[in-house]
Amino acid sequence: MLEIVGVSHTYANGTRALDNVSLSIPRGMYGLLGPNGAGKSTLMRTIATLQTPTEGAITFGDLDILAQPEELRKKLGYLPQDFGVYPRVTAYDMLEHMAVLKGVADKGDRKAVVESLLNQTNLWNHRGHFIAGFSGGMRQRFGIAQALLGNPELIIVDEPTAGLDPEERNRFLNLLAGISDNVVIILSTHIVDDVADLCPRMAVLAGGKVQLEGAPLDLIAQTKGRIWKKTIGREELDAHKERYQVISTRLFAGRTIIHILADSRPAGFDDVEAGLEDVYFTTLADLRRVA
């Protein structure tokens, strides 16, 4: 549905944020996973027609979005990463205004749409408050409310759960999960669980390049029998790093749990039920080794 072909972008200060990115994104939820600074936001902003890439082509259905950005904007819902809001405007007024911009011309329709979205995002009781005074979670919910306005066919949400507390994050992901399957939703995030919880397809972006693409379950299956874990003390870590290909280290009750990549089980290591996080860290570890 959304085809990204050979997209590269270099900023005026010389940063090469995207390097020949090609992705084919079907309807449904699509996870774009990557560390901070991987180029995710640049890609999201480019798809949202907020900036033109230095190279490449992007089409949505039959629509060439670089040639006709106006047409895409009619079908787009976009929640940017850390957006701000105008001071002295209430949630209701701002959403009403956004509805006008999204082409909901009829006053009655607008009222219905705004009220139902405020309700859906649990902001109804705060509709008369200034958005500038909202907490992070409330502001994100306002953000998704405006992104959902006007039945978009393409929804882009950029790092929506960063900085939310676990309860708010859950609430937010539930909102996303409730969106129709007929819509293309791109969820960009650095949080592996966001993707694991929601997305039937995903890609890993790092260093401006696509490192990995596929269905999370397939990707996890590929690492089966190659990931092993061991609980060690902090002082043993360096020695293990030298001997094995350590892909992740995690602290648990003061001890360090390491996951390593190996084709057969080394002595002292246990089986581990590999998760998406292992896939992600394996990809990043490979990348670091090459560098």
């Binding site: 902003r45 949202a48 027609t49 907020l50 106006e70 904007r73 009619k74 787009l76 976009y78 929640l79 940017p80 850390d82 957006f83 701000g84 809001v85 105008y86 001071p87 956004m98 911009l101 999204k102 082409g103 953000g143 405006q146």
Partner: peptide, 18 residues
């Protein structure tokens, strides 16, 4: 300038406002 200073700009500019 408000759109740039507040950071609400991307949301507005991604709509069909024209």
């Amino acid at each position: 300038v408000r759109d740039d200073t507040t950071g609400f700009g991307p949301i507005v500019k991604a709509t069909a406002i024209g």
